[in-house]
C-alpha cells in the first residue's frame, strides 16, 4: 500500500527528465524550504517532523472531514496519512511539492475510508456537487429585467475590517468561515482546502482530483463565495 501511495501521488508534477530512482535529486517540485525540511526529516530530525505535522494537520483534518462521518474518524485517517508519510519518506523523489504529496496520500486514505463511513451518516452531510453549471452567486442578487439586467440588485456592502489581520481578529468572522468550510460538500471543500488553505498549485489540484481547470475554478469560486456569504452574514 505504501509503495502504491508513493507511486500514485508522485505522478503529480512529474518532470520526464528526472530520475525516478534518485530521491536526493533536487527537483523543481520542491521549494528550497521544503528541500531543507526533507533533508532534516531523512536525518531523523524529530523537530522537523513536528513542524511538518503542526503545519499541515489542520488542513488535512478539514479535508478528511469532507469524506468521513466525524472528527474522530478524520483523526484516524490523518493519523494513517502521517504513518504513510513516515514509511514513504525515503521513497519520495521530490517531483511534486511535499505538501502536494502529503495531500495526495490523505485523499487516497480518506477515499478508502470514506465510502463505508458514509453509510452511517445522513445524505445531506455528503451533498454531491457534480452540477458545475449552477452559478456561484445567488441569481436573485442581480437585476432580472430591464436595461440593467445582470447588474447588482442587492450588492455586497463594504466590510469595515478589510485587512486580513482585522478579519482574523473577529471571532464571529472566523467562526463563520470555519462553519462554512465544514458545511461545504466534498467536491467544493477539497478544492478550497488544497488551493487556499494548503496553497497547492492549480495544475496539481487538477491532477490530484482528476478535474479540468474549468471545473477547478467553478468549484473553487463557488466554495469561496459560500465562505464570503458566511462572513457577510456574520459581520454585515
Amino acid at each position: 500500500m505504501n509503495a502504491d501511495i508513493a507511486m500514485y501521488t508522485e505522478s503529480i508534477g512529474h518532470f520526464p527528465s528526472m530520475s525516478r530512482t534518485s530521491p536526493v535529486v533536487k527537483s523543481s517540485g520542491l521549494t528550497k524550504a521544503e528541500d531543507t525540511v526533507l533533508a532534516r526529516l531523512r536525518r531523523g530530525d524529530e523537530g522537523a517532523f513536528d513542524e511538518l505535522v503542526n503545519q499541515h494537520h489542520g488542513a488535512l483534518i478539514r479535508m478528511a472531514m469532507g469524506y468521513v462521518a466525524d472528527r474522530e474518524v478524520a483523526e484516524e485517517v490523518v493519523q494513517d496519512t502521517w504513518m504513510a508519510v513516515i514509511e514513504s519518506l525515503d521513497r519520495f523523489e521530490g517531483r511534486s511539492s511535499l505538501r502536494t504529496w502529503i495531500c495526495g496520500i490523505l485523499i487516497h486514505k480518506a477515499k478508502d475510508r470514506g465510502v463505508p463511513e458514509k453509510r452511517h451518516t445522513t445524505f445531506s452531510a455528503f451533498e454531491s456537487y457534480d452540477d458545475d453549471s449552477e452559478e456561484a452567486v445567488d441569481p436573485s442578487r442581480f437585476q432580472q429585467t430591464g436595461e440593467l439586467a445582470g447588474h447588482w440588485a442587492f450588492p455586497p456592502q463594504p466590510w469595515d475590517d478589510r485587512t486580513p489581520e482585522k478579519l482574523l481578529a473577529s471571532r464571529q468572522a472566523v467562526n463563520a468561515m470555519q462553519q462554512a468550510i465544514e458545511a461545504l460538500p466534498t467536491t467544493l471543500k477539497e478544492v478550497l482546502i488544497l488551493r487556499d488553505v494548503e496553497g497547492v498549485d492549480a495544475k496539481d489540484v487538477c491532477e490530484m482530483l482528476k478535474i479540468t481547470e474549468t471545473n477547478l475554478y467553478v468549484r473553487l469560486h463557488r466554495a469561496r463565495e459560500r465562505v464570503r456569504v458566511a462572513v457577510e452574514t456574520a459581520i454585515g
Binding site: V53, G58, E75, W82, P156, L168, D196, V197, V231, E232
Partner: peptide
C-alpha cells in the same frame, strides 16, 4: 471580499493531533 476571504483561509486557527496520536507518530 473574495480576495480577502481567499487570503485568510491559510491563517485559520490550526488543529493539532491528540497527544497520544502525536506520541505514536514520534
Amino acid at each position: 471580499q473574495i480576495d480577502l476571504v481567499s487570503s485568510v483561509l491559510n491563517s485559520l486557527p490550526n488543529l493539532y493531533p491528540p497527544p497520544m496520536n502525536r506520541l505514536r507518530l514520534h
